[in-house]
Write a protein that binds this DNA or RNA. Structure first.
Lengths: 201, 201
DNA sequence: ACTAACGACATACGAAGCGTATGTCAATTG
DNA sequence: CAATTGACATACGCTTCGTATGTCGTTAGT
């Protein structure tokens, strides 16, 4: 396998471009990032970019998808580790909030992403994460632990809260002090769906 | 008063530019809106724009502030009309969701605004709206009707839910059918703060 | 094995758009 | 009534995006 196949080489350039885009978009913002510069940073030109991703927005979509997918899996894992469906739901939300504190996530996924790619609820990666939340809520519904609310709507709102919460925490002057208050408020909001106050399912 | 004073004339050009910006930003998006075109639409040039607002972002800030201020007052009025603090909180949220269904609000305030101006929680107009929500929550706290949660954090999250909810409703295939489900989910989330389930304070 | 087609990427070109520097004219002021 | 100020227009340079064209290595067909 000393011979690098062409497909592998192309995958490598794609990976390099995504990495460069991730860095540039995070540091300069989407509109501030120059395609000439970011391709040159990895020893390529815009030719490679337009061949692989179509246009600037295409690279942005790839970058967002990568970050978002990692976030979804991490949140899901956090939910699995917690004991019980209800604890899992809270852990999932907390994990989201904490991940969204990274400047890279803030700038790319929360601020520029919606402007460039449109409503996040339409992104394929967001939908993946949404499925996890919906599954957890369905478990709770099976246990008769929650009110008869539309599960998809509730799940979308819950995810939205987590992202919004992170946005505020990061922008606050003292993020460390704000974080626990926000997590508490998040759990308070989420508990609205429970039939029995302070349940521990 | 047949003589138009200079200040009034300048205020008029400002108003014309804001109106033109509102239209262009809503139709083309922030990055797609050309300053040459939008100023020409009201019989001016970019000279007037850079003199009055500094740069493109300056006009965007003025446009967002105008829209956001109207939204805040409308939501506050809706809250006042409802009977009781708790009903008022729900009415406020519902009003926000419904206003955010307008394409103009969607595009300018929810999608492009954060990318151009940064985290919405830092906008002066958003803070005005936040104060209203906080005041309502403080009323509820005085009535001992809610849990001892950090009021500012809860208020920010609640506002975030409303905006996020609207974003999803507008993007859904059948907004009319989705709206009631979302409002129900919103009320479910908000009820998490109550000490007594299904209160009617 | 040799040539023809194809794919991946580079280079060259044209078209906007933004921000600034400079110009102009009316209105105010002393 | 002259001088200055302020509101806005015009002109310019710079950067950037997207595409159209070119090049070279690789694969396929015989």
């Amino acid at each position: 396998m000393a011979t690098t196949t062409r497909a592998a080489k192309m995958a490598e350039t794609r990976a390099k471009l995504i990495a460069a885009g991730r860095k540039a978009f995070a540091e300069k913002g989407y509109s501030g990032a120059s395609m000439d510069d970011l391709t040159a940073d990895v020893g390529l030109t815009r030719g490679a970019l337009y061949h692989n991703f179509g246009d600037k927005k295409g690279l942005m979509a790839a970058v967002v998808d990568e970050i978002d997918t990692v976030m979804a899996t991490r949140a899901h894992e956090a939910g699995q580790k917690a004991g019980g469906s209800w604890k899992g739901l809270l852990a999932e939300g907390a994990a989201y909030i904490e991940m969204a504190l990274q400047p890279e996530v803030q700038r790319i996924v929360l601020l520029d992403g919606p402007a460039v790619l449109g409503d996040p609820s339409q992104w394929p990666s967001q939908n993946r994460c949404l499925q996890a939340t919906i599954a957890t809520l369905q478990d709770l519904a099976a246990e008769k632990a929650i009110k008869p609310v539309d599960i998809e709507a509730f799940a979308r709102l819950l995810n939205g809260v987590a992202l919004n919460a992170a946005l505020w925490v990061a922008a606050s002057e003292t993020p460390e002090a704000t974080l626990p208050k926000v997590v508490a408020a998040f759990e308070c909001l989420a508990s609205g769906v429970l039939v029995t106050p302070e349940s521990s399912v």
